[in-house]
Simulated scan of single mutants.
Amino acid sequence: MRLVVAVTGASGALYAQRLFSFLEHGDHEVHVVISDCARHVAREELEKGSFVIPSRFILHGQRSMEAPFLSGSNPFSAMVIIPCSMGTAGRIAHGVSEGAIGRAADVFLKEGRRLILVPREAPWNLIQARNMVALIEAGAVVIPACPSFYGKPASVLDLVDTVVARVLDHLQIPNDLAVRWKESKS
C-alpha cells in the first residue's frame, strides 16, 4: 500500500508517532509530511522531543511541490492527517490547497482516494462542525481522536492505540492494537 501520513500542529503528536511505529513493521511505502507547527508540538509532547520516523519512510517538506502524491497522475492508496488541526481541516474543506498537506488532501478528494482526518480539538464551534460535514460530504473519513475505554486501557499508549487501531481499520490494515468490543485482546 502506498500511504501519505501528514502531521499538523494540533495536540496529539503521540497519535502520529504510534501510527509511524505500527507502519514501520508493514510492507507499505510511506511518505511523510510534517508541518512546522507539528514539529513545535512534538517538542512539547513527545519524550524524545521530536518524531522518530523510520528510515525507510520518505520525508517531504511542507513547502515542497515535488512529492509524487501531489498529482492525481501518481496513484496512492490513502492519506492520513493525524492529528489534523482545525485550521488544516478548514482549509481542506474549502479547497485552499496551501502547502504539500493541503494540496495532497485536495488531490485525494478529487481523485476519490481515501482521505482520513483525525481531529483532536474539543469542543468544536459551529464553523468547525460545518467544516467536518463538508469534508465528509466530499468523501473524507473523519475519525476524531476519541479513545475508547471498554478495553480497560492501562496506559496512555493503550488509549492512543484505540484511535490508531481505528485509523488502521479504515486503511484496511489488520492490527490487534486495541481490544475490540466484546472480544479479548490477544
Rank of each mutant, 00 (worst) to 15 (best):
P83T: 08
R63V: 15
A104V: 03
A67I: 04
R114Q: 05
P119M: 04
R63S: 15
E121H: 08
G90Q: 11
A122G: 06
E98H: 13
G90M: 10
S155W: 00
W124F: 13
G112Q: 05
L59Y: 07
M65H: 13
S77V: 06
G90H: 09
G90S: 15
L126A: 15
R120A: 13
I82D: 02
I92L: 09
S64Y: 05
G90F: 14
A89M: 15
A93Q: 06
L109I: 00
I101S: 08
R63C: 07
S77P: 07
S85D: 01
A100W: 03
W124P: 03
F108Q: 10
G90D: 14
E121Y: 09
V107R: 06
A122V: 11
H94I: 11
S148T: 01
P123K: 08
L59H: 07
M65P: 03
N74P: 07
L70F: 01
V96G: 03
R114K: 15
S85L: 00
S97E: 12
V142G: 08
L117N: 10
G102T: 01
C84V: 12
G87W: 04
I127L: 07
C84I: 10
I136D: 09
S97W: 14
P75M: 08
R114S: 00
S155C: 11
P68D: 03
F149H: 00
G99N: 08
F69R: 07
N125V: 04
V118R: 08
G90Y: 15
G151V: 01
C146K: 09
S71W: 04
M79H: 03
P153Y: 01
Y150T: 00
N74T: 14
G95W: 11
C146Y: 13
A122I: 13
S64T: 04
L126N: 15
M79G: 00
V133R: 13
L109F: 00
S71C: 03
I101K: 06
A89C: 12
M79N: 03
A78P: 10
M79Q: 05
R120V: 07
M86S: 14
A89T: 12
H60M: 07
S64W: 07
G95T: 05
C146P: 02
N74I: 14
I127V: 13
I92A: 11
F108P: 04
V142Y: 04
P83H: 10
I92D: 10
A145H: 08
G72A: 03
V141D: 11
R113G: 02
A104P: 00
G139R: 13
S148N: 09
M65A: 15
H60E: 06
A105F: 01
L115R: 06
K110C: 13
E111V: 10
A78W: 05
V80I: 15
L59F: 15
L70H: 04
E121P: 09
A138G: 05
S71H: 10
R130C: 11
R130N: 08
G87H: 11
G102P: 12
R120G: 06
C146H: 04
